[in-house]
């Protein structure tokens, strides 16, 4: 009886070890694959890059989720991390594992996001509360029209070039100072001003607002 129990627990132990070993082997294989994809991306292979970023997304989200509570912040940090990865993709050395490189960038962006979250928390109003104050007794039709306008605006912003969209998002939507926005995006203050100005101008033109 005892013997059988020992045997079964020993077998269980071996099984767990074997599973761990196979997990580690899977991770190694995945790391090697990511290294190859990144090397191809550095050479200009867009498909490899697209595939790599999509495969890394769960890992990026997990890293950011460990540091940030709000799901919207997590997604923002993931996007910040993707932008940084893009801008410093030439710093990856394919002879080294890919995961630590990726994780270091994601952790940094999540920390930044957490810090700016802490700073801006005091200035923010909950959306629900703001809605009640801003739109007392608004009828359903006006509500729909407003939502459609918002959707158009979102589309228009989505069609802006990346630099302009980033600049607009950081300086006008997140309301960061130019210095903070510059730190986050890696764009110089001058470039941010120009990109924000151009973004606003093209939005105004699109919606027929006089300059």
């Amino acid at each position: 009886m005892l013997d059988a129990a020992l045997r079964s627990s020993a077998a269980g132990f071996l099984l767990v070890r074997a599973e761990r070993a196979s997990d580690a082997a899977d991770r190694d294989a995945r790391d090697a694959r990511w290294s190859e994809l990144m090397a191809a991306a550095q050479a200009g292979n867009a498909r490899a890059y697209d595939m790599l970023l999509r495969e890394c997304l769960p890992l990026l989200r997990a890293i950011c989720r460990a540091r940030l509570r709000d799901p919207a912040d997590v997604e923002d940090a993931v996007q910040d991390a993707l932008l940084t990865i893009h801008r410093v993709r030439h710093t990856y050395d394919p002879s080294r594992p890919f995961r630590p490189w990726l994780a270091a960038i994601a952790e940094r962006r999540a920390l930044d996001r957490g810090r700016s979250r802490g700073r801006s928390a005091a200035r923010e109003v909950e959306i629900e509360a703001a809605g009640e104050v801003a739109a007392p007794g608004r009828d359903a039709e006006a509500e729909v029209a407003l939502r459609m306008q918002a959707a158009h605006l979102r589309d228009a912003v989505g069609e802006l070039p990346t630099a302009q969209r980033t600049a607009l998002g950081l300086t006008k939507i997140e309301d960061l100072s130019l210095a903070e926005a510059s730190g986050r995006s890696g764009m110089s203050v001058g470039a941010l001003k120009v990109a924000t100005h151009r973004a606003l101008r093209s939005l105004r033109r699109r919606f027929g607002v006089e300059e």
């Binding site: 867009a46 697209d50 970023l53 997304l57 996007q79 993707l82 893009h86 993709r89």
Partner: peptide, 15 residues
């Protein structure tokens, strides 16, 4: 985020 990935990989330049 998926759209961002599309944008980043479109027209990727070698580095």
């Amino acid at each position: 985020t998926e759209d961002l990935i599309d944008q980043l990989s479109t027209g990727l330049k070698p580095v």
